Simulated scan of single mutants.
Amino acid sequence: MQEPRMPVDHVRLSQPAKDRLSYLKRTTGVTQWNVLCRWALLLSLRDPSTPLVKDIVTDSNVEMSWRTFAGQYGDLYLALLKQRCVAIGEEPNDENIQRVLTVHVHRGIGYLGADKQMATVEGMVGAVVPT
């Protein structure tokens, strides 16, 4: 039996996003792109505003499959992306889901890189877990 096709096949990053994540990999000790990208996505989705950047050039050599990006929580991430599409008045089709994923991962990477607190794993956790 063939697996159902996912609305998102791959996650690709821009060169500036790759550069920022390379720095974060060194400072946090988190060595996997997908883990940092998951944090970035959730940080961005937590912000109810619409990202200012709509088109991102994914020109780096960092690319991962949806399965690698999402891991065992793929259905949850997909539901969050569909919900965001609906919240901004867009149909949750494959193209819109891919675009929302890309802009939110990139905005989240910006959040991770802009806050000095996020340079450590403890700081990253502290930013999202209320004390």
Rank of each mutant, 00 (worst) to 15 (best):
G29Q: 08
I56S: 13
A79H: 13
T131K: 08
F69Y: 07
W33V: 07
T131D: 14
T50Q: 14
R107W: 00
V100A: 02
N93A: 04
E122Y: 08
Q15S: 11
D75W: 00
R12Q: 02
M118H: 15
D19V: 08
A87M: 09
D94A: 11
T28M: 02
L52K: 15
L36R: 06
R20P: 00
A119V: 03
M124Y: 02
K116L: 13
T28R: 07
R20I: 14
T31A: 09
K82M: 07
Q83C: 12
W33Q: 07
E3A: 12
K116W: 06
E63L: 06
N61V: 06
V128P: 03
S22I: 03
N96P: 07
Q32I: 04
H10F: 13
Q83H: 11
D94W: 06
L21K: 12
A119D: 07
P130F: 12
W33D: 09
Q32N: 10
S65P: 08
V105M: 09
G89D: 03
Q15W: 01
T31V: 04
I109N: 01
A70I: 03
T120P: 08
M1S: 15
D115Q: 10
L13N: 12
D94L: 02
G113C: 00
V11A: 11
G126H: 10
L81M: 06
L13T: 05
S60D: 13
C85H: 10
E95C: 07
S49E: 14
E91C: 06
F69I: 03
V8I: 15
H106S: 12
A70G: 01
D19S: 13
T131S: 04
T27S: 13
D19K: 15
Q15I: 08
T68A: 09
A114C: 04
R67C: 02
K25S: 11
M124K: 01
S22C: 03
E63G: 10
V125R: 08
A79G: 09
L78Q: 15
S14Q: 02
N93Y: 02
C85M: 03
D75F: 02
L76E: 03
S65D: 11
E90N: 06
D59R: 08
M64C: 09
L41M: 09
V57G: 02
R46E: 14
L101H: 11
E122G: 15
I88C: 03
R107M: 00
V125F: 05
T120D: 02
R107L: 15
R12K: 12
P51C: 14
H10M: 11
D115R: 14
G74D: 11
Q2K: 13
G110D: 07
E122A: 10
R99P: 00
L81Q: 00
G71D: 01
A119N: 12
D75A: 09
L41P: 05
W39H: 08
Y23L: 08
E95G: 06
V86R: 12
L13I: 03
M6R: 09
D59P: 01
L112C: 13
D19Y: 09
M64T: 06
